[in-house]
Simulated scan of single mutants.
Amino acid sequence: MIQPLAYIHPQAKIADNVVIEPFVTINKNVEIGEGTWIGPNVTIMDGARIGKNCRIFPGAVISAIPQDLKFAGEETTAEIGDNTTIRECVTINRGTKDKWKTVVGKNCLIQAYCHIAHDCEVGDNCIFSNSTTLAGHITIGDYVVLAGLVAIHQFCKVGSHAFITGGSLVRKDVPPYVKAAREPLSYVGINSVGLRRRGYSSEQINEIQDIYRTLFVKKYNIGTALDIIEAEHQPTEIRDEILDFIRNSNRGIMKGFSGA
């Protein structure tokens, strides 16, 4: 169902059963999957690739050109996965020649007034609370929860299953499975509640706690802590994911537990 007060470029590719409400603008180089709902006053610009069964609420702007002075008009995309909800006044910019695309995964909830800048890669099943802001070139893993008013510095990475508390300024990488809070941003424990909800066993949760106790609580430097973890913990998918994340961190990881 397409309302007559919406503008849709004749070359846009709109699948079956898409609902487009009044005063929507959809530009030429756009693709929208089956069953998606586009609310009133949404603007969808060139390069948007929107999946199936998404919901996009009033005032959102999808695939606007990057807010990057180096952008030279190259043809790039902003890709939204299936079953993702984008609430009011969210802005998602398309990529630059760095990665050629901005990606938001499947089954995500991006709440009102969030901004996702160019060349960001957001995993599946993420929740970004109101007014969360991602600068350019940020990588977010699966099942990440960002509380309200989180601001993340460009080129940072956040590992899967991490939780970052509201109002946080993220200047360093946040490893998987942790909770992060305080200023400057610091480790405050593992995301045990989220892990239990997603079916992680007690043994897996204890393994994660033991690894991060060595890394963040026992006051070793990072190199020593990684050597101890590798020596004392049997290889598992979880252990190796944590070690690989930290070893491949370009910005360095957040502070350890301060006890304050």
Score class of each variant (00 low, 15 high):
G252H: 13
F57M: 10
P40K: 10
V217N: 07
S186C: 12
D173R: 11
T139C: 03
Q234K: 15
F245Q: 08
V178M: 11
S186F: 02
S160L: 04
Q3T: 10
I208M: 05
E88K: 09
C54V: 13
K106P: 01
F71R: 04
F155L: 11
V18I: 04
Q234E: 14
I20K: 05
R213T: 08
R55E: 12
D227V: 02
I56Q: 15
L226P: 06
S63A: 15
G136Y: 00
D173W: 06
E79D: 13
N41H: 15
C156P: 05
A64G: 15
T91Y: 02
E203L: 02
I92D: 01
V61L: 01
K97C: 01
I246W: 10
G189I: 12
T77D: 13
V61Q: 03
I116N: 11
V122L: 11
H153V: 06
H233K: 14
P175N: 04
C120R: 05
E232A: 14
S258G: 13
N93G: 07
H115N: 11
I116V: 14
G141P: 00
G123N: 06
L169C: 02
D210I: 00
Q234I: 00
H9P: 01
A180S: 14
K97P: 01
I164T: 13
K172W: 04
C120Y: 08
S249P: 13
K179M: 15
L146N: 07
D227Y: 00
A6Q: 09
E230I: 01
T25A: 06
M254A: 09
C156A: 15
A225L: 00
Y220A: 00
T25D: 03
L195H: 09
G123Q: 05
A64E: 14
A135F: 09
V61P: 00
H233D: 03
V104F: 08
F71G: 09
Q234A: 10
F128G: 06
E183M: 12
K28A: 15
K97S: 15
D16P: 01
A225C: 09
N191Y: 14
V174D: 08
K219W: 01
G35R: 10
R55F: 14
V193C: 09
I127N: 11
R247H: 03
S168M: 04
R182N: 15
L134M: 11
K157Y: 08
E34M: 01
H153T: 07
R198H: 13
T85F: 10
P235G: 05
R94L: 07
I253E: 02
N250S: 12
K97Y: 04
E34G: 00
G256P: 04
L226H: 02
A12F: 05
H115K: 09
R171E: 14
I208H: 09
N29S: 12
N130I: 05
N250Y: 04
V158L: 13
G59N: 07
P22E: 03
G223R: 07
E21M: 15
I8L: 11
T139D: 11
M254Q: 04
Y143D: 12
Y200D: 03
